[in-house]
Simulated scan of single mutants.
Amino acid sequence: MSEPIMLQILDELKSLRSDMTTVKSDVTALKNDMVTVKSDVTALKNDMITVKSDITSMQSNMNFMQADITSMQVDIRMIKETMATKEDIVDLPLIARAVLETNETRAELSAHTRSINILNARQLKMEADIEILKNR
């Protein structure tokens, strides 16, 4: 083979070697990118697991809140059922008057009790005086 052809083949081989180096570099970069993508996918999977767990927890909390709301509705219904009606409110002045009369009666009884205690004390003194006079 002639020298120019050999030089041309050598240039082509050098060009192929350069291209192969570039291809190897690109393949290495792609491998590194794939490792990064795999890492990102793993991180996303872990994030998804966390999100699913959070959603489950939120659903559980919502169930508890729904139970609390139902309980409060029952409580409100019971309060409404036991609330005073207009007829009950009409009786309030009568109840107030009865309480006042009871307080007045209590005051009178207290006064009478004091009087009875005074009379009892006097009677005991008189009995003691009579005993003293008898013994003389």
Rank of each mutant, 00 (worst) to 15 (best):
S2D: 15
E3M: 15
P4D: 06
P4K: 06
I5A: 15
Q8R: 14
I9C: 10
E12Q: 15
L16K: 10
T22A: 08
V23T: 03
S25V: 01
D26W: 00
D26P: 01
T28G: 13
L30S: 11
K31S: 14
N32V: 07
M34E: 09
M34V: 12
T36P: 09
V37Q: 07
S39M: 02
V41P: 06
T42D: 09
L44W: 04
K45F: 01
N46Y: 02
N46V: 06
D47S: 12
M48P: 06
I49P: 04
V51L: 15
K52V: 06
K52R: 02
S53L: 03
S53R: 04
D54M: 00
T56G: 14
S57F: 01
M58N: 09
M58A: 12
S60Y: 00
M62V: 13
N63A: 14
F64L: 14
Q66K: 09
A67R: 06
A67M: 04
D68C: 00
I69C: 11
M72R: 06
M72S: 08
M72K: 09
V74G: 11
V74I: 11
D75V: 06
D75L: 04
I76E: 07
R77V: 08
R77F: 03
R77H: 03
K80V: 07
K80P: 01
M83C: 00
T85F: 02
K86I: 10
E87D: 03
D88E: 02
V90G: 07
D91W: 05
L92T: 05
L92D: 01
P93C: 03
P93Q: 04
P93G: 05
L94T: 13
L94P: 12
I95A: 13
A96D: 11
A98Q: 10
A98D: 08
L100E: 10
E101Y: 03
E101L: 08
N103V: 13
R106A: 07
R106E: 04
A107C: 03
E108Y: 11
E108L: 08
L109I: 07
S110D: 06
A111C: 04
H112Y: 01
H112C: 00
T113C: 00
R114F: 00
I118S: 00
L119Q: 12
L119W: 10
Q123T: 09
Q123D: 00
L124H: 13
M126E: 15
E127G: 00
E131N: 14
L133R: 00
K134P: 01
R136W: 01
